[in-house]
Design a protein around this nucleic acid. Structure first.
Length: 255
DNA sequence: AAGAGTTCCAACCGCGTACAA
DNA sequence: GTTGTACGCGGTTGGAACTCT
């Protein structure tokens, strides 16, 4: 499922994102917003192309992203919209708060298309009572803060089992820098009617409004990224359980 | 137990569009 | 009108996880 990390000809990293890279990207975007995706990785201390950063943020790290099982209601909406819009996944995603076009596209090809064609989709782990262990954020059974378990009980409620997780995320890192500087990039509709501004809490004494982008690390070099004050990795993984490392870290470490 | 086949989804790639110079 | 740059979208792929034989 994950791609082998590698580098392209220009030395930029490719493949799976590491938790460290995620951390850098989130820390940077939540503080400064995505003012220029092409330049962003350089200032964020990432050896990635801007396109890759944008994709990672939009499809995985962005607040309010709903992950996991689709409710029947959501599937119905997707099917209906696909009939009218065709493969315009971004347009469909715009109607489904918290879902990304990529995720919808994948779900369509793996499940809904077959359902529509009358083919019973192959039963997968997610269709059973067994939580799929490959998801980072569900891989730690001892994570007492992870309320986003992929259990079947979630199927009985309209929203995704991960919605609570997303809500939690948004309340913690919802960011007016993002909102103000990237209105084109952040789908405001995906906030379930709650403005990113409204839920925003000033993180750890930082004032995003009074601290200009050029603040402390504008003139830094490629690898001189300075994390926001008192960046706490534990707090980070608490807020972003789905970024919890899959490899190289003791999965049984609870929060 | 082990190898083969299948499924799923994160990530990549290329193209089209928008916009500024 | 042309060119260059940046972004967004949709199609495709890589490979781990899972299932089957």
């Amino acid at each position: 499922m994950v791609r082998t990390p590698g580098r392209d000809q220009s030395g930029l990293r490719k493949g799976t994102w590491t938790p460290e890279e995620d951390k850098k990207l989130i820390a940077y975007v939540t503080r400064y917003g995505c003012w220029n995706w092409r330049q962003l990785p350089r200032f964020a201390g990432l050896s990635r192309c801007g396109k890759s950063c944008r994709l990672r943020w939009m499809n995985y790290l962005r607040p309010n992203i709903k992950r996991g099982n689709y409710s029947e209601e959501e599937e119905e909406i997707i099917t209906r919209l696909h009939e009218s819009l065709g493969n315009r996944w971004s347009a469909i995603a715009a109607k489904l708060p918290g879902r990304t076009d990529n995720e919808i596209k994948n779900h369509w090809h793996t499940s809904l298309k077959k359902k529509k064609q009358g083919i019973k989709p192959t039963q997968t782990v997610s269709d059973t009572n067994e939580p799929k262990q490959t998801e980072n954020y569900d891989s730690n059974p001892n994570n007492s803060h992870n309320n986003c378990s992929n259990t079947d009980s979630a199927k009985s409620v309209p929203s995704s089992p991960h919605s609570s997780c997303s809500d939690h995320l948004s309340s913690i890192i919802t960011d007016n820098t993002i909102s103000s500087s990237t209105t084109n990039n952040i789908d405001m509709d995906s906030c379930n009617g709650t403005s990113l501004f409204e839920a925003y809490e000033e993180p750890r004494g930082l004032n995003f409004w009074t601290e200009p982008f050029v603040a402390d690390n504008f003139d830094m070099g490629m690898n001189d990224f300075v994390e926001p004050n008192n960046f706490d990795l534990d707090a980070f993984y608490y807020s972003y359980p789905h970024c919890y490392p899959v490899f190289g870290v003791d999965q049984n470490v609870g929060f």
